[in-house]
């Protein structure tokens, strides 16, 4: 076979031989590059399908929408406790405060309703989104502070208090609506998505944990006294009242405290990595209903 090919090429002038060899090498290189690119290029729809299938296989008895109840969906006793707690939910005060803040006019007479589509009601399921003008992922928390600042108001702390209250109210108006996160055909959006995915799976801190170590490998297992929540639907209940915190906390609070727990110095709330992580985690939970605000042990 080799002799046949050599003989065939050998019948051509040297210039043509070189050209043929060059083209063949180029074609092989290009082909290989395309294969590598195809296998490594972000493919959000395929990720979503694989992600949801993984949890369905791991917990075959659980309904898809139940994953949004976090640890309560993993443990029957906890589930009963939670049902009782929901009669007088601990986030109720935050909800009332959030409603009040949401409707209270800024000093210029405008309100939060002026900053959001549909006047901010029933839109939680669309956040975060990739803002092509800003060239970055915009979370609901970031949008709330951008609204405040553009109206001459002081931004809220990202981790609790007023931010948790306003986002709790906004989530409440979206309860039952399925996450509907879009990834536009923009390489920057895909890069942000991939950056969030990388952050989710990369190990950090002295304990050498990734987000996935707890929320993919071990949901339903205990870490100390806590039952770990599955990554699927983990943001649908945010913000949450956490007994461990003795109060409300936002997604920013959850991310920064998770990082601290594995002995990694947390990044600043709403830093690019955290916004991208929220983008990835929300996208792979597309189709699951918003259940926030929530309560957790």
């Amino acid at each position: 076979m080799m002799r046949f090919v050599s003989g065939l090429v050998g019948t051509r002038p040297v210039g043509i031989r070189l050209a043929v060899t060059g083209l063949a090498t180029a074609a092989l290189t290009l082909g290989a590059a395309q294969i590598v690119q195809a296998s490594e290029a972000p493919n959000p729809p395929a990720d979503l399908k694989a992600f949801q299938a993984f949890f369905k296989d791991k917990f075959p008895k659980l309904k898809r929408e139940d994953f949004v109840n976090g640890p309560y969906s993993m443990d029957e006793g906890l589930y009963r406790q939670w049902k009782e707690k929901e009669e007088f939910p601990p986030y109720e005060f935050a909800l009332d405060k959030g409603k009040e803040l949401f409707g209270k006019p800024f000093r210029n007479g405008k309100t939060f309703a002026d900053c959001f589509p549909n006047k901010g009601i029933g839109i939680r399921q669309n956040y975060p989104y990739f803002d092509e003008k800003q060239g970055k992922v915009v979370t609901l928390e970031l949008a709330v502070n951008q609204c405040l600042e553009s109206n001459g108001e002081q931004p809220y702390s990202y981790v609790k208090d007023d931010m948790a209250a306003v986002t709790a109210y906004m989530a409440f108006t979206s309860r039952g609506k399925p996450f509907d996160i879009k990834i536009p055909n923009d390489p920057r959006a895909l890069a942000a998505y991939n950056n969030g995915k990388r952050f989710f799976y990369a190990r950090r801190g002295q304990l050498n944990f990734s987000c996935a170590s707890c929320h993919v490998q071990s949901p339903g297992e205990r870490i100390r006294a806590e039952v770990l929540a599955p990554a699927l639907g983990i943001l649908n209940a945010m913000p949450i009242y956490r007994s461990q915190w003795g109060g409300m906390g936002t997604i920013s609070r959850r991310f920064t405290s998770c990082n601290s727990q594995v002995r990694s110095v947390p990044l600043k709330p709403q830093d690019e990595e955290y916004r991208d992580l929220e983008y990835y985690l929300s996208y792979v939970s597309n189709g699951l209903p918003i259940s926030g605000p929530g309560a957790r042990p």
Partner: peptide, 18 residues
Amino acid sequence: ASIHQSHEQATAWKDMEI
């Protein structure tokens, strides 16, 4: 050790991916 972890995880994170 944390620097080593960062360099290692630049590619090793893919091993955990679903």
